[in-house]
Design a protein around this nucleic acid. Structure first.
Lengths: 123, 123
DNA sequence: CAATTCCGACTACGGACGTAATCGATTCGA
DNA sequence: TCGAATCGATTACGTCCGTAGTCGGAATTG
């Protein structure tokens, strides 16, 4: 079974749950209020779709549900990153970095950080 | 006007045109035959959607069209990369690199290449 | 207890997407 | 010349997605 893809809107919900969990639908909606102009119903729909996709679980608490992520952020981020690298750079990461570099995506700290990483990897 | 997003299937068509252009729909379909199991009609639909989105142009040649990319691959790749970095890494590229690193996405040559890039950027 | 509120479940609906089939016009081959 | 092949245009259709509205039941409040 191919793992169900998570849409952009669903991802926004996951980010909230990754920061703190478990949470009720109302709490998730609150947390998103600044970023997205969604009604509570919309958030509930997204949560239930995520539950169907197996990305979150829930436990009953009175007559509400408390939602918890099942999918780990690490895994999601890794999958998405790999997808992009595969699709656009033939699976090789160096060209991605070259591209980001050309777009001035790196601050001085970034450069230092990357150097450190490279040093570690070579060791 | 927000630039129209290009879907996965459409992107496969763009890759063909980025390699060689202009091309007829039939030629694009041929070039894709190995990679995707699409009928000619499907390819034509994708081309016409890409034309509507302003990603390709076409010129009549007899009763066929010759398609040419308008959107540059550089731009597309840059946009998609930026989207991912923004969505998953708060707009900072270093964490992306850290992530790719952890997944053993780097060969020895990659590391050398990246070191070279970093060197250049620091200079 | 009755009216209101709140919850999850189900339903909705337009647009994008993947994947074509069909149609009307044209051209090519026999 | 006349049917077959081919072309772009139009239409199709199921699914996912964004974004809710509604419904039936349970809890709360007065």
């Amino acid at each position: 079974m191919a793992p169900e893809r998570i849409s952009d809107a669903e991802h926004a919900v996951m980010e909230v749950l990754w920061q703190r969990s478990p949470m009720t639908a109302a709490d998730v909606a609150d947390a998103l209020a600044d970023a997205r102009d969604w009604t509570l119903q919309t958030v509930k729909t997204l949560l239930s779709r995520l539950a169907n996709k197996g990305a979150v679980s829930y436990q009953q608490d009175g007559r509400r549900y408390l939602y918890t992520p099942i999918l780990a952020r690490e895994d999601y981020v890794g999958d998405e990153s790999r997808r992009l690298v595969d699709r656009l750079f033939g699976g090789r990461a160096a060209p991605l970095i070259a591209h980001l570099a050309e777009q001035q995506k790196f601050t001085a700290e970034d450069l230092a950080e990357i150097e450190r990483l490279i040093g570690e990897l070579k060791a």
